[in-house]
Design a protein around this nucleic acid. Structure first.
Length: 412
RNA sequence: GGAGAGGUGGCUGAGUGGUUGAAAGCGGCAUCCUGCUAAGAUGUCGAUCGGGAAACCGGUCCGAGGGUUCGAAUCCCUCCCUCUCCGCCA
């Protein structure tokens, strides 16, 4: 969550952040009003409590009884105000860094660079669904009958391909010092809020298990971050890097008809996710490092991609800076989002109370970062489409062959 | 799921109704001692919120939330978590 102190001491900066993100500045005024009310109510409550303590000390039972009633009323008021104040606070997104491109939506994102060679085909190309169905490795038809639209079966060499990708990524990232983690895929509402991923607007994107009062995570990030919850970290272990693997669940509310074909946009997919804690002054360096890891992965997988600096209007609410990696999708003749990489600065760590003790003895909120390692569905799409052959078979990139045990996926 | 025990500061761990934010130890920091290291001596060290330029003052925090009481770390209730035993299970 955002720093209350910043709202109080530098409201114009917060207002600027909201405006840049295309959010209504009224939120700020609303919060300031309730914050004033809270402060007044608090001061009154504290004064009553001081008197009450004194009365108890003096064994003044009469006065104590009186003050007890008074305090109870005041505490009810404070409780009510506090709740409203907290809910408003959760609605504040992180403040973008000054050099993040300002823009309304994804059309104003800035391309930073292009890597890899966009393939040219001398035969009519197929899209990933045509390829996957013909090769009998993707089945969305049965999945729709079993679970509904936006689900899929990965079969045979398709399923093995995912395992190969996982193994490849884990090998590479472990050797770079990331600790491998299999996290829970369910999360408590309170923790979800603290991670800044359960604001009113985000809630409708989540699946919720009513009976156990648990949410299904939308990314391993959501349960990776809390590994550092309520902890005073020692900087010697920083940057602390995790590589998690889990299923991600998304309602994809409000996307009817969008990317309806194939497995690009689905309710459930598996993902390798990177998460890191760093010293505040090193998070930008760490951000670049995570990006370099992603580039290393997609380069090894021989997927042509471009790196995009996400503009203020398109960034995630927790992010101070976000990059996306977009892969070349031949059937769409364009680059599509396949991975993202975010510096959330102290926005999440303030929520989960993850601090670092600095060399000078002071403590500060650590910075946290997250990045996609491999989003399975979309990566498989890119692999199939970019490496298709005239006969409909798929060439496996060299780096992946040792993990697959085969170099082509053909009709069988 | 059933029975029992327990959750206290960075860590270990005392404390069962009234100067307890909390003994002691470990650990951290500072100074001293020491040829260096280790050991030792002394002092010091929780978090958070509000007010204040600051010194400082006040509030809150002993798993979380309610309750009893003039007064709760201490008593009661609910929930969460940990441990032991039993049951069930991959």
């Amino acid at each position: 969550m955002i720093d209350i102190d910043l709202i109080r001491k530098n409201p114009q900066k917060v207002a600027q952040g909201l405006t840049k993100r295309n959010k209504d500045v009224a939120l700020l005024e609303q919060f300031q009003k309730i914050d004033d009310q809270w402060r007044t109510a608090m001061t009154t409550g504290e004064a009553i409590r001081t008197h009450q303590k004194k009365a108890a000390q003096e064994r003044n039972i009469e006065k104590g009884k009186e003050l007890k009633e008074e305090l109870k009323k005041q505490e009810d008021t404070i409780g009510r105000i506090e709740k409203e104040r907290y809910e408003l606070l959760l609605e504040f997104p992180n403040i973008p860094f000054d050099d993040v491109p300002v823009g309304k939506d994804e059309r104003e994102n800035k391309e930073i660079k292009k890597e890899g060679t966009v393939p040219s085909f001398d035969f009519p190309i197929q899209d990933h669904l045509q390829l996957g169905e013909a090769l009998n490795i993707i089945d969305v038809k049965t999945a729709a009958e079993v679970a509904g639209s936006r689900f899929y079966y990965l079969k045979g060499k398709g399923a093995l391909l995912e395992i190969a990708l996982l193994h490849f990524a884990l090998d590479m990232l472990s050797s770079e010092g990331f600790e491998a983690i299999i996290p829970p895929v369910m999360i408590r509402p309170e923790v979800y809020e603290k991670m800044g991923r359960l604001s009113a607007s985000q809630r409708e994107e989540r699946y919720f298990l009513e009976k156990e009062q648990l949410y299904l995570i939308g990314s391993a990030e959501h349960t990776l971050g809390p590994l550092g919850m309520d902890t005073l970290h020692t900087p010697e272990n920083f940057p602390k890097r995790y590589v998690g693997f889990s299923t991600a669940f998304r309602q994809e509310a409000g996307t009817y008809g969008k990317d309806a074909r194939g497995i690009f946009r689905v309710h459930q997919f598996d993902k390798v996710e990177l998460y890191a804690f760093s010293l505040p002054e090193q998070s930008e360096t760490e951000h670049q490092f995570l990006l370099s890891m992603q580039e290393k992965i997609y380069t090894a997988l021989e997927i042509p991609y471009r790196v995009v600096a996400i503009c203020t209007g398109d960034m995630g609410p927790t992010d101070a800076r976000q990059f996306d990696i977009e892969a070349w999708i031949p059937s769409q003749h364009t680059y599509r989002e396949i991975a993202s990489c975010s510096n959330t600065t102290d926005y999440q760590t303030r929520g989960i109370n993850a601090k670092v003790k600095k060399a000078d003895g002071t403590t500060q909120y650590a910075h946290a970062l997250n990045a996609t390692g491999i989003a399975m569905g979309r990566t498989i799409i890119a692999l199939l489409e970019n490496n298709q052959q005239a006969n409909g078979s798929i060439r496996i990139p060299k780096a992946l062959v040792p993990y697959c045990g085969y170099d082509t996926i053909t009709h069988e």
